[in-house]
């Protein structure tokens, strides 16, 4: 099994940390992982993306031009990465701020109202965990137990009290994933 994922959105949405938690979950269940960020002078509000590869075998290139899954969180990223999903792959997006919804018919498209669900949970910062939950519903590539361990490893100890809230957000995302059929 090899899963190649791009997570793309605005800086500040938790794109990089979502990728890190996912990658750490892979490590926790003894898989090979790479986490490759776009790095640059961008700050909060600029674009940010990270590609994560989780595999049962040695990973060759950490730099990819097509993906099994694209998790897309703003319009710029939709314009750039919708076409980079492999045929038969998965595109997951949050409609908040998306003007042009995806149109491809050869991929599986899912929607998650991440911004709204996180606000309903009472903490908008859990947005990225809601989206992660939705992704894991569409593609359960890591076990929930590994995600919990991944959260423990990637969050500093002073933030460990927030782990139950994050798990709650992941579960909310899992239960509220919507499949989108392009007509």
């Amino acid at each position: 099994m090899t899963e190649e994922i791009i997570i793309a959105g605005f800086g500040g949405q938790g794109v990089l940390s979502m990728g890190k938690i996912l990658a750490y979950s892979g490590v926790m269940q003894d898989q090979e992982v790479t986490w490759f960020p776009s790095y640059g002078p961008e700050m909060r509000g600029g674009t940010a993306n990270v590609s994560v590869i989780i595999s049962d075998s040695r990973i060759s290139s950490p730099i990819l031009h097509e993906f099994d899954t694209a998790i897309i969180l703003n319009q710029q990223s939709m314009d750039k990465f919708e076409k980079a999903v492999k045929p038969g792959g998965v595109l997951l997006f949050d409609p908040n701020g998306i003007v042009n919804e995806p149109t491809r018919k050869d991929i599986n498209i899912y929607k998650i109202e991440g911004t709204k669900i996180a606000a309903d949970l009472g903490n908008v910062k859990t947005f990225n965990m809601v989206v992660l939950g939705a992704y894991l519903k569409a593609k359960p590539i890591v076990k929930m137990e590994s995600i919990r361990k991944g959260l423990e490893k990637s969050l500093p100890e002073r933030h460990h009290k927030l782990i139950p809230l994050n798990l709650e957000a992941i579960e909310a995302g899992q239960s509220k994933l919507e499949e989108v059929h392009v007509l």
């Binding site: 890190k20 990658a23 490590v27 090979e32 992982v33 790479t34 986490w35 490759f36 960020p37 790095y39 990973i59 950490p62 730099i63």
Partner: peptide
């Protein structure tokens, strides 16, 4: 280079 410097792996 910056790719391996910035990349996370196990």
């Amino acid at each position: 280079d910056g790719a391996i410097g910035q990349m996370m792996e196990k």
